[in-house]
Design a protein around this nucleic acid. Structure first.
Lengths: 370, 370
DNA sequence: ATAGAAGTTATTCAAATGTATTTTTCAGCG
DNA sequence: CGCTGAAAAATACATTTGAATAACTTCTAT
């Protein structure tokens, strides 16, 4: 029967394929005669003859019998008149030398590779990379699906009390893809103020929609994303009702946010920026993206701009105190923003499309954009 | 460390290769977050959602982690929040579906494949196939090496009393490649009469050379390959000395012979055929090759020709009584002869070069010669 | 809503592989 | 020929994978 350690499928039909596949158990008709009545008398290769042509052929034969014919290592040892250890070592050598190679025939293989790379290079808890669709308009949908799946699994396996949320197209799709559940002890809360105009998205409903789907408690952040001035924001946050709200936000177990950029695609840029602040201003200060309405530069550090001090949201630098921070974002326009977030390690979980993640990764490593 | 079940080498250097290789134990930095505090709560896919894109991606991720990153199945189960059984089944499915494929990158791979095929299709105990060299003159050398290696291993692992031998260029090379040994209880004997003229090879020395190398006893067959007539041959074999000799020959444990063809390359054809017998005669009767001086047709059956009754050798049809019959032969000119021998199952062990064996195999199966 | 079928999980055990240690063998050298 | 060092074999044990079975869950059809 097929084993996971087999490299190839087992069916006889598949055996006819050009690239031999699968390791077949119990194969009959072995290559070398199968009687051996003197139990493993020693058979040595002198150093001078090491890896001669016949050695190479024997190794190929061993590899063939193991990977293609599906014999066990003990079977092969008996058949070829050598020790099981020698068979094992030959197989290891076959791998190391490249005599045997394995490929993952899937468009997800490069995503899986990139996931591993991101986790290793940026110390992420997880990276979820989806293939980049031809239609960039599909990216929020795909990222929403992936984030929804991730978050559903996370909630199934973690008992938490506070789930903080941002808003945006990707997060809306995330909520659509959440599996329903029953979490009466969970409080879903907005981690940032909302938009006070614009008809594409009722940002105040984002948290409540998720809370409804999860039968969880909901805590609204009934405030706009920006106050009139830093001073005004401080006055607002000093009110008891907001202080309690922000204590709860700071105590979240997980935050699920997206990354904004400075293009006109951004809801925040189109509807949220105060009239006295332009994207040119922000770019001039080096801004490449925003998280919770707070803009940061290519190194992921907050830019020195009064707008950042007007934001009614958890301060970006306090995000690191939340155990799990999911940043879901993608699209070529977001590359610089994602790279900045990676550099500053703003995320512990990144959900992104492949092309964007790869380019962001390469930016961080100082490589030319391919 | 590298394991035989790994599909790829482990060294970090090798990890940089384009085609990812090797299964790496103890890989750090996993793709999916590695804390899971509620022990495997169920996560089900309904039938309606079976093998969605995300399923496929999860399977690719599992396969990647197992084959490329070297995690154990239990590790992966814990990391991805599923059962070890599910991981195992996904890996099996990955194999069966072709998501994962393995290749043997060796010129010996096709030889190993052909070996298996020959063993299965012709019920051989063993097939040893060597790559066909560009210079056909090298074929006897390579076949001699392979046969010598086989025979040395065979003798190391089997205690036998009688080893019968033919003669020819391939067998001369075989003897050169025998490992020396000490077999005082072994009797090496010629299974066929020798050539009475010709300077290329002293056929009477073949058995004695091998006996010397093996410190074994030697039994000469002091007779020519052909008698003057079938009657004369019967008179010769009726003599006591020959009767005992042939009893011993018939009792051999192993016979090591080569296959002759009807071309001028054949020693027998050039120096051994009686003057009153021509290769045209033999071809007319359907002969395609000879074993022990006895000619057979494309089905491997003895042709009806008086020459076959003049041969001073073990009758070809009696060969099947010897437990192990090694036929070592190769070269394009031998294809028909090898095919005939295969059809009639004259061999239990075949040593041949790849092109010849493949074509012979295809002939037998009724396929067009490529 | 219920029953039956199908699939998955949990658990245990068997088989195969991987590893470590000790012993034996072999090649090279003096 | 003896000695030494390296390599391989033998042996035992640990780990991983594969398989079997019972119980549980989910899905589908009625």
């Amino acid at each position: 029967m097929t084993k996971a350690t087999d490299a190839f499928p087992l069916s006889e039909k598949d055996r006819d394929r050009r690239t031999w596949e699968g390791r077949l158990q119990g194969a009959s008709g072995l290559c070398i005669e199968d009687t051996c009545d003197n139990g493993g008398r020693q058979q040595r290769f002198s150093k001078a003859s090491a890896m001669t042509q016949s050695d190479e052929q024997i190794e190929a034969r061993v590899a063939w019998l193991y990977f293609m014919e599906g014999l066990t290592q003990a079977d092969i040892a008996e058949k070829l008149g050598m020790t099981r250890l020698r068979v094992n070592r030959m197989l290891v050598e076959a791998r190391t030398s490249g005599l045997v190679s394995i490929t993952l025939n899937s468009r997800f293989a490069s995503c899986a590779a990139l996931e591993q790379r991101l986790v290793k290079e940026f110390g992420l808890k997880a990276a979820i990379i989806v293939p980049t669709p031809q239609d960039p308009g599909l990216i929020p949908v795909l990222l929403g699906q992936a984030t929804g799946e991730y978050l559903s699994s996370y909630l199934a396996e973690n008992t938490i009390q506070g789930l903080g949320l941002g808003w945006g197209a990707t997060l809306r799709e995330t909520i659509r893809n959440m599996r329903a559940g029953r979490y009466p002890d969970l409080c879903v809360n907005s981690m940032m103020g909302g938009l006070t105009h614009g008809s594409e998205l009722n940002t105040f409903e984002t948290a409540s929609d998720l809370a409804n789907r999860l039968n969880a408690e909901c805590q609204y952040l009934a405030a706009p994303i920006y106050a009139g001035s830093p001073k005004s924001r401080d006055i607002i946050l000093a009110q008891d009702v907001f202080r309690e709200t922000f204590e709860r936000i700071a105590a979240n177990d997980i935050a699920v946010l997206s990354i904004g950029d400075l293009s006109e695609r951004s809801l925040l840029v189109r509807y949220g920026l105060p009239r006295d602040v332009s994207t040119e201003d922000l770019r001039a200060k080096g801004a490449v993206g925003d998280i919770m309405g707070q803009f940061y530069d290519e190194n992921g550090r907050l830019i020195d701009h009064p707008l950042n001090r007007r934001a009614i949201a958890l301060p970006l630098d306090d995000l690191s105190r939340i155990p799990t921070v999911v940043l879901a974002s993608g699209g070529a326009n977001k590359t610089l923003a994602v790279a900045g977030a990676l550099r500053a390690k703003r995320a512990t979980v990144l959900v992104c499309d492949e092309d964007t993640a790869r380019k962001a990764c390469e930016l961080v490593r100082g490589e030319a954009i391919a």
